[in-house]
């Protein structure tokens, strides 16, 4: 089983568009599990036009204090990095669940074992069978929750349960620790960028994260040819070269692409002979050549 990640830095580069279409094309040759780990706003199911199914809760440790056993020492508040424990006027610890990352430091540090472990649901994972050769696993945080890493970890764990030939990971937006976690153990990273200054900037960050983990990268330039972006494109070329990342595809902006997204029918599915679908075919062949 091979893991391939698709990442794109800030939102809006078309990372999910690339991931879903690539999953469809690859699934003609191999079994593909697509993991949507954009836990703050997963949308691969929308792009694929399927519903989220088979919900399972994502739980993290939620400490609670047995006040009878508490000697009011304040150790728990001192060890908590997230500032989730506040000492009241009576010197009793108060845990603010929303800030707690479930790291258990307070549980382990309490000298009288007064902190017990409960659980809290921070989000859900889903599993949707798209067709015989394509399954989608989605991780989703609950509204107002901010702890993305445990949700990414759970989503990935669940996706690994179904993965047979290829696990294609659609990472979240951004360049933080949740991305590092999502792409870990990948044999290849596909960085999706667009020819804008911000796109170029984030491409560099993504390629750097991949390099730190010794993951080879390829670059897909999406929305190629919008505006006078030749200079920016040259910049992307030079960044990619600096990381020995090959630019494997340039996807032009096309009305049919926009329409396929609105209609929730991926272009490679709706119109396999479209010029954009052919680009995805080429990328899939290239991937087949290395896995």
């Amino acid at each position: 089983m091979k893991i391939i990640s698709v990442s794109g830095g800030k939102g809006g580069t078309g990372k999910s568009f690339v991931a879903t279409n690539l999953a469809i094309v690859l699934s003609r040759y191999r079994h593909v599990t697509l993991a949507d780990l954009d836990v703050e706003g997963p949308n691969d199911h929308l792009l694929l036009g399927v519903d989220l199914a088979e919900e399972e809760p994502i739980k993290i440790v939620n400490p609670f204090v047995k006040y009878d056993d508490c000697i009011k020492c304040g150790v728990c508040a001192n060890v908590c990095d997230t500032g989730a424990i506040v000492m009241t006027r009576e010197k009793l610890p108060f845990v603010m669940a929303r800030l707690c990352s479930g790291c258990r430091s307070c549980v382990l540090a309490c000298p009288t074992k007064a902190i017990l472990e409960g659980y809290r649901v921070i989000g859900y994972t889903y599993h949707t069978v798209v067709n015989n050769n394509l399954e989608l696993v989605t991780g989703k945080l609950r509204e107002g929750e901010e702890h993305t890493p445990p949700a990414v970890r759970e989503g990935k764990r669940r996706a690994l349960r179904y993965a047979r030939d290829v696990l294609l990971i659609d990472t979240g937006a951004g360049t933080g620790s949740h991305i590092t976690l999502a792409i870990k153990d990948s044999m290849l990273l596909i960085a999706v960028t667009e020819p804008t200054p911000l796109g170029a900037h984030d491409l560099e960050l993504i390629l750097e994260i991949a390099k730190e983990q010794n993951i080879p990268s390829w670059v897909v330039v999406n929305k190629y040819g919008i505006g006078a972006s030749e200079k920016i494109f040259e910049k992307i070329v030079s960044i990619a070269r600096g990381y020995e990342a090959e630019i494997i595809a340039k996807i032009p902006y096309h009305d049919d692409v926009a329409r396929s997204i609105v209609e929730r029918r991926p272009i490679t599915f709706k119109n396999p002979d479209h010029s954009v679908s052919k680009i995805f075919n080429d990328v899939a062949h290239k991937i087949m050549g290395v896995i």
Binding site: A77, T82, G83, A84, V86, M87, T88, R89, F94, M96, R98, L99
Partner: peptide
Amino acid sequence: GAGVRSVQTLVDEGVNIIAAPSLGPNAAVI
């Protein structure tokens, strides 16, 4: 966690009113 740390300091000082333009969401809850 700036807001929470700030509230903790004020709890330790025995403050019972915070007069401020606005509190962050976490600070408000605490």
